[in-house]
Design a protein around this nucleic acid. Structure first.
Lengths: 326, 326
DNA sequence: CTGAAAGCGCTAACAC
DNA sequence: GTGTTAGCGCTTTCAG
């Protein structure tokens, strides 16, 4: 009836609907769910959903999801291992119709289980051959970022990375190395720093600050430009540069990654990831996957684009100074 | 049985549990929900959950919620009116066991409905006499912020506010006015600006930027210090100050509100709201409300605390400069 | 086109 | 202590 069943007369439907409305009747979602075997809700499993990256992706998710009659359940985990605990219980049986799995390596036994249960899953910012995935060309992005620095004439280029446990961090390193090699520039290990912090996989302002401090500590042997693995780290780096009484880009140039809103405020040159779009697309993918569970997985990648602002000393910069402190 | 019913022998329980485990059995949440008449999930209704304020509050929510066996459903709305559309359908009947309602005025007919349905509701950052609420002493906070500026010797003090549709914005205005009057300082209407933007109720970087530009445009008649209604607006304000070739606090001092993470990075003096704590407490309140639906509503307020950094020219400042651009 | 009946997977109550 | 049974509120199927 409420499912617009064809064999109910217009007349009857209208009458019932009117009464339903007057009584403020709404079908009970759980009862309906039980009977129909679908829950009209999906799960988003997100590491540290605190981070700006996820906030922006989630906006896209919400916005697209509002087109469907579907709820969003949020499950934040701080470590892939932790996923296990409660997640299993909830997804294993029809708690949700599908799930979005963000930025973490999907454990193999997990994958097997979902595959076996035929739960629709879309991976965002991570990859597994058996599931649809939306990911960013981190290698390419980092390569472009590095080339940008090189093209501006910087020679002594370093990299400030996150925790290499993180796949994006590893890939961004690869892109950096590739560009440097290609340009015939040396890969000085002292200038390639990475965080050891498990918190947010090292994608934090603090690691950006501390590692930049370390680079600055090299004195005359410090790099003249740095590829920073994320904007949030770049924010910390900028603070460290300022604290040291240096200026960016004059003393040290840098390029970030992500293009979080903040990057624009601070004039950080960066590689833009289409976060909002990825969120929206993830939902579309998931919905179509639900229709068609047996199609082969679709893997789609996004190439980040260079957004030139003022931290690289490029000609179109428009530098402005302000107060910064950590 | 799975409810730890007392009259099942240890022995039997253990045996069943073992088999259940081996078979990877999990009770179906919806079926259980239907039978028990509780869903083990709660709803958070949030305006613009994009904003940093909510991200931090949600962290607290998630973290506390993980102690209970309960899912978080997120519902983002962009305007209180929009709440109506889908929200009603979902909460009116047992979709969730309770809800958190953030920062928006709860419409009266809504309130009545929830009251009537005995749905546990906790209000965060907003108030309604019939529901538990957690709110911030905006008037007091803004009063303290303004007094701080006054105590530092500033005389020509302005206020840069958000959209007055927003209750916090109105309250912060009141606190400002009170402090100014008390100090015998003039309330110059030209120096009390507010956003007309509906987007995020005007709590955006852009409005901060544009309104500050307007203040600067007064030339010699511009204020020497400004109370800014939120940190995010303060970020925009800082950019505008820089763009104009001015310096903060030397030319224009300012104090923000919220203490979002970013405020620390930029050295913004601000009024700290315990966002994470409020999130966690909201869950505690909700849980205890579920136990005891008929207790009278509890209203708890948090007093923001002044965090002195470098945008007010206070003595303990440690100013550092960096690149900023809009 | 409409009404009745079965059943989704579980819990709770009640016999045994 | 343990097994059985009747719903939870809906959808779906199958007679009328």
């Amino acid at each position: 009836m409420f499912n617009n069943h064809p064999s109910v007369s217009e007349d009857t439907r209208a009458r019932v609907l009117k009464v339903a409305n007057r009584l403020n009747y709404h079908p009970h979602p759980y009862a309906r769910g039980l009977a129909r075997k679908r829950t009209n809700s999906i799960l988003a499993v997100i590491p540290f959903f605190t981070s700006y990256f996820f906030v922006e992706v989630l906006q896209g998710v919400q916005s697209k999801l509002s087109e469907f009659d579907c709820d969003l359940i949020l499950y934040g985990v701080n470590h892939p291992d932790q996923v296990d605990a409660s997640l299993r219980r909830n997804t294993i049986r029809g708690r949700v119709d599908g799930m979005l799995f963000f930025s973490m390596k999907m454990p193999d036994d997990f994958a097997e289980q979902y595959l076996h249960l035929k739960t629709p899953v879309v991976l965002v910012d991570t990859f597994h051959r058996s599931f649809d995935s939306l990911s960013v060309e981190n290698i390419e992005g980092s390569y472009v970022a590095t080339k940008h620095l090189i093209s501006l004439g910087y020679k002594r280029i370093g990299m400030l990375n996150a925790n290499l446990e993180s796949a994006p961090a590893r890939e961004r390193l690869t892109g950096f190395q590739r560009a440097m090699k290609e340009a015939g520039l040396p890969l000085n290990p002292d200038l390639i720093l990475r965080s050891a912090s498990p918190r947010l996989d090292g994608f934090t302002r603090e690691t950006g600050h501390d590692l930049m401090e370390q680079l600055i500590g090299y004195g005359p042997r410090r790099p003249d430009a740095v590829v920073v693995a994320s904007d949030i780290q770049a924010v910390g780096s900028l603070a460290a540069i300022s604290e040291a009484g240096l200026r960016c880009p004059d003393d040290i140039a840098l390029v970030g990654f992500d293009d979080i809103t903040l990057a624009a405020s601070l004039g950080i040159t960066t590689m833009r990831q289409p976060m909002y779009e990825m969120g929206a697309l993830a939902i579309e993918r998931l919905m179509s996957r639900m229709e068609n569970l047996d199609n082969p997985p679709l893997h789609q990648t996004f190439t980040p684009t260079l957004v030139v602002r003022s931290t690289c000393g490029s000609s179109i910069q428009k530098a402005i100074s302000a107060q910064v402190q950590v």
